[in-house]
């Protein structure tokens, strides 16, 4: 994944504030966190001279296969299906305290993580603490993974 600096270099760097942010750097940070998309920068979209950069940035942030809206990626080839993330995820604990939260098979479809055929799958990602307006940079599923199979981009 690109760094904030790499993204910044592709922006107009004029601090025009049209996006609502005070600086292009602030926009870059939000773009990296996926709170904004390249389309939220009017000059980038409208001005011909930025077209190449616009294409590059859009390419970087198109939802590649497996990436959810929160940027959560499960590297299935690394996943052992241990279910640590299933049980550790605070959303899962709240949605299913007796099932997933207690280490047992999930008893509701409201949980985010489920293990199917030995590999974890992510659903209901809109419930993830990293999603929406007031995001919390929760790392419960990342820190508990023995094989670093989960990543947020």
């Amino acid at each position: 994944m690109a760094s904030v600096m790499e993204i910044y270099q592709l922006l107009p760097k004029t601090n025009c504030k049209e996006c609502g942010k005070t600086t292009c750097m602030a926009f870059a940070v939000d773009l990296l966190a996926r709170k904004f998309s390249a389309d939220d920068c009017p000059p980038l979209v409208n001005e011909e001279k930025y077209k190449e950069n616009y294409d590059k940035l859009s390419g970087m942030f198109t939802p590649v296969a497996g990436v959810s809206e929160t940027g959560l990626i499960v590297h299935t080839e690394k996943c052992t299906g241990c279910g640590n993330c299933v049980v550790a995820c605070p959303v899962d604990v709240a949605a299913d305290p007796q099932g997933a939260g207690s280490g047992r098979a999930p008893t509701t479809d409201k949980v985010i993580f489920k293990v199917v055929d030995g590999v974890v799958t992510a659903n209901n990602v809109q419930e993830c603490r990293r999603f929406g307006e007031n995001i919390i940079l929760c790392v419960a599923c990342i820190d508990t993974c023995p094989t670093k199979a989960i990543e947020f981009v």
Partner: peptide, 11 residues
């Protein structure tokens, strides 16, 4: 298809 079993159990 299997649910909840780990990779080893599935295998």
């Amino acid at each position: 298809k299997m649910y909840t079993a780990c990779m080893k159990g599935v295998a």
